[in-house]
Design a protein around this nucleic acid. Structure first.
Lengths: 216, 216
DNA sequence: CCTACCGATCGGTAGG
DNA sequence: CCTACCGATCGGTAGG
């Protein structure tokens, strides 16, 4: 009679994993799921308070598996930030491309502000808030990469603000104005509730009124 | 011959503790040192990434000693926030009391903005940034206490903004304007560097220009 | 407030 | 990607 070593078989894949459609490869899919889940958790609980086990569970994995895709928890955070910035840049470019050619500075600013609220508060957008609030948890080198992406994003704003200033509609130094404006917008990630209160259009209207006296 | 159990005597009080001046009691002093050190560490590294050992060491204590003064790490965080808000309220009240009686709304706003920058960016003021960025780490009940204090602080702003709006100088809904304005100001805690760049007066000027078109 | 300690949890890894 | 695990660290406590 041979000895039964494992009396109780461990449940196989206790949490449901996303089933693959026939013939569908998921090369980078699990990696994406990790990034998505991490973004959500990092935003809700903060980077330091989120365990890699939380993240693994959110993707239906075992506790050690995230390290097959990412060499460290920190590199996962960096991936969230980098991906967030890259898609924000792309989204902003699309918004600008979709707007009429001869737009006057005030209307151009409105496009940028409205799009920024989308990036920040739109559905499924935890990436940018995480980037904004967890910067101290990445290395200086990683921070430099993110800063570079931020510069690209902000580059679209500077000429618009400069034009408004020379029109006399923006009464503050451009560089400080940009910092203050981004503050006003970014802070909304802390208080905005999609389910109640203002719509993103109303928010945009209020911001435009505040910054350049554009009446509703 | 008796057995020597402890061969190497542990160093007594390896870290220098603050020496007491003759006759000076330090009833609440150590508690204050803990709060002060915690505020600095929470701001620099974040609540979750700061260990109670870090905090103890900053106050020259052993690792278990903070729990003689606070029942948990979280209650220490709450103490930082509560104390921060209470002194911010007091400081704002002093600023208002010290300003001339018949001040017009725009100048009253300037006093509030300038004082807010002081609260936020002045020397030794880690308390408010910690309160702003670690709200998710306290209990709902504690959050309610902080929210009450914030209401008191903000109460001074609402009539000023309402007056500016009816003057036509503020072109946005008062409630949204207040949220956007606090965002613009609060965000400065993320980027302002006391050692370079603008002074707090210049910051105030830029903010006034942006919000109500007050030219330099 | 210190000493000595505990149970829990954490990020990460070797080997498959 | 899972299994099984490790060393380190953490918040907190009993007893003095």
């Amino acid at each position: 009679m041979d000895t039964q070593v494992a009396v109780i078989a461990p449940p196989k894949r206790p949490r449901g994993r996303p089933r693959k459609t026939l013939g569908e490869r998921d090369d980078g899919n699990r990696r994406r799921e990790l990034i998505l889940g991490a973004a959500r958790l990092f935003r809700r609980k903060g980077f330091a308070a989120t365990s890699t086990r939380d993240i693994a569970a959110a993707a239906g994995m075992q506790s050690g598996s995230p390290f097959y895709h990412f060499k460290s928890k920190q590199s996962l955070l960096f991936a969230v930030m980098e991906e967030g910035m890259q898609s924000a840049i792309a989204q902003q470019q699309r918004a600008l491309d979709a707007s009429p050619a001869g737009l006057r500075p005030a209307d151009r600013l409105r496009v940028l502000v409205r799009n920024h609220f989308d990036v920040l508060l739109g559905p499924g957008s935890d990436f940018i808030p995480v980037m904004l609030y967890e910067a101290r948890s990445i290395t200086p080198r990683q921070r430099a990469v993110i800063a570079e992406l931020q510069s690209t994003y902000e580059a679209a704003w500077t000429p618009v603000l400069a034009a408004l200033q020379s029109e006399g509609r923006l009464k503050a130094e451009v560089k400080l104005a940009r910092l203050l404006i981004f503050g006003a917008l970014n802070w909304s990630a802390q208080w905005y509730d999609r389910r109640k209160g203002a719509t993103l259009d109303q928010l945009t209207q209020a911001a435009m009124g505040l910054f350049i006296g554009e009446a509703g």
